[in-house]
């Protein structure tokens, strides 16, 4: 059960229960919808981007604990960052959950997001953890919708 407690850490369960920035953002000037047709997870990311800065970030949607907690913690992690910085964290996050970045040995900007490192032991759950990030990427690049299966 150790892998399991690695996956469902208290912080993740807390964000699942009480997601942060979980609302529609009235001041948003970018948004995108992310969808995982295999499991039905669906979320919307709202961004207020000014002069290349992510002034505000929020999300709405439904999904499993991993996808919800990941979205919640992502909004906290990228708020105030530049587009480039956000994309860099996405890249590091993606590499971490697919086992291509050792967050303990290699320098990175992940901070508290390393709590999702356990996802790498559950390959079928990688899409849950990255859905919000793919959707953020889509919003930053003006794609209205993304699907994990395209």
């Amino acid at each position: 059960m150790s892998e399991l407690s690695e996956l469902y850490q208290q912080v993740i369960l807390d964000h699942n229960k009480k997601p942060r920035n979980f609302r529609k953002l009235e001041t948003a000037n970018r948004s995108a919808e992310g969808y995982n047709p295999l499991c039905g997870d669906q979320l919307n990311i709202y961004l207020q981007v000014e002069d290349d800065q992510l002034k505000d970030v929020s999300f709405e949607g439904s999904g499993c604990a991993i996808s919800k907690a990941s979205a919640s913690m992502m909004t906290q992690a990228v708020k105030g960052k530049s587009k480039q910085e956000a994309e860099l964290i996405f890249d590091e996050f993606h590499r971490m959950v697919t086992g291509r970045l050792n967050e303990e040995k290699e320098p990175n900007q992940l901070g508290r997001l390393t709590i999702f490192a356990g996802v790498r032991d559950f390959p079928v759950r990688v899409k849950c953890a990255t859905l919000a990030w793919h959707t953020l990427h889509a919003a930053l690049n003006n794609q209205p919708t993304i699907s994990t299966e395209n």
Binding site: L7, C39, C64
Partner: peptide, 14 residues
């Protein structure tokens, strides 16, 4: 209640 079926599936699989 309060648990998404995918989380159920993963915990059962473990």
């Amino acid at each position: 209640d309060g648990v998404h079926p995918h989380d159920i599936g993963t915990i059962l699989d473990q």
